[in-house]
């Protein structure tokens, strides 16, 4: 665990503890376009590289003016503490991400981070009182058993770092994209020892169909889940991608009795838990309050916050993507 594993909220005493996140000016060391609409940035960021955990995000300033106004949350794509570098995978979907992706080598990016709860912290019981019921289930040993990573489109961004951090485990990486040209990071996942399978919507590479087919197949073939004794059987699934994909992944994993962590994205203002803007409905609450309309997809792989606003059994209740997440146990959120 990081020495800065604590978070800014959640009831932890402040005292003289070092800040869990910081503002940083990061020089761009490398820039490449791995696929149309995707830009991979390598940043000089020793502090971030040392502290970031897989699934956390950086809140990145777009350009240098007031338009667009807000930062964009971007998952930490990779972090190399030895090299002191952090990578971002930017999918250009709007003006903000275009400005970020448009930087040149030698430019400086203004970032806040690392922010949020990552894959290894999700469902860890640090939010007692906010959604305690969602955490009553079994908690997997983070080092135990094989792991399945499921990526859809730009959702592959945090999973490369996850694969690096899980290099000692058996890792199955299932990567989906619309078409072969938009498959990114397959080689990086393989470099960390992951057994990679790909799926494309148009059949131009790998399985012709949704990536969730690969997960179903994997869990069926390997007999994943608690009951299985197979060495390679996934004991947990970490997923990032479009909301319909996450719903399907959660259903498949749930059906197999496998722990499922999902990384959500939402529009954010502060990114640090102050504004309460990135609310996401908790399970069984807020259906009438528009739970099905909540996927206000941000421009990028996003991020969470604990408002401590739970505790009222009848009212809708929300978690916050920037500080409670962006990675949640699938049972903690209404998908």
């Amino acid at each position: 665990m990081s020495a800065h594993g604590g978070r800014a909220g959640g009831g932890a005493p402040l005292g003289a503890a070092p800040p869990p996140w910081a503002a940083a000016e990061c020089r761009v060391l490398g820039r490449e376009e791995p696929a149309p609409g995707y830009v991979r940035l390598l940043l000089e960021a020793p502090g971030l590289a040392a502290r970031a955990r897989p699934g956390q995000f950086l809140h990145v300033h777009c350009g240098h003016g007031r338009e667009p106004l807000l930062r964009r949350p971007l998952s930490v794509h990779d972090a190399d503490p030895a090299a002191g570098t952090v990578a971002l995978l930017v999918r250009v979907v709007g003006r903000g991400t275009a400005l970020i992706a448009g930087v040149a080598v030698g430019d400086v990016l203004d970032v806040l981070g690392p922010l949020g709860r990552g894959f290894d912290a999700a469902g860890g019981g640090t939010h007692a009182g906010v959604h305690a019921s969602a955490q009553s289930g079994a908690r997997a040993d983070a080092q135990g058993g094989a792991l399945a990573l499921v990526a859809g489109g730009a959702g592959v961004a945090p999973l490369v770092f996850a694969a690096r951090a899980s290099a000692g485990r058996t890792v199955h990486a299932l990567v989906g994209a619309r078409t072969a040209a938009e498959l990114v990071s397959v080689a990086e996942l393989g470099r960390w020892g992951a057994r990679v399978r790909v799926a494309t919507d148009d059949g131009t590479s790998g399985h012709h169909g949704p990536v969730t087919d690969l997960l179903e197949d994997l869990l069926a073939r390997q007999g994943g889940g608690r009951a299985s004794g197979a060495v390679d059987a996934p004991r947990e699934v970490w997923a990032c991608g479009p909301l319909p994909m996450l719903r399907r992944v959660a259903a498949i994993a749930g059906g197999a009795g496998v722990r499922c962590l999902v990384s959500l994205e939402a529009h954010m203002a502060c990114g640090v838990g102050a504004c309460r803007g990135c609310a996401w409905p908790a399970p069984g609450a807020g259906e009438s309050a528009g739970a099905g309309e909540s996927a206000g997809a941000g421009e990028s792989a996003g991020a969470g916050e604990s408002a401590g606003a739970g505790g009222c059994a009848t009212a809708p209740s929300y978690v916050h993507v920037c500080r409670d997440g962006p990675v949640f146990d699938a049972r903690e959120v209404a998908l």
Partner: peptide, 23 residues
């Protein structure tokens, strides 16, 4: 006086040089 869960999402919209919120 009592806790409030706040409004249903989406709660934020970025506008020209501004931020529209419904927390």
């Amino acid at each position: 006086l009592g806790p409030r869960a706040g409004n249903p999402p989406p709660r934020l919209v970025e506008t020209a040089c501004g931020l529209l919120n419904s927390i």
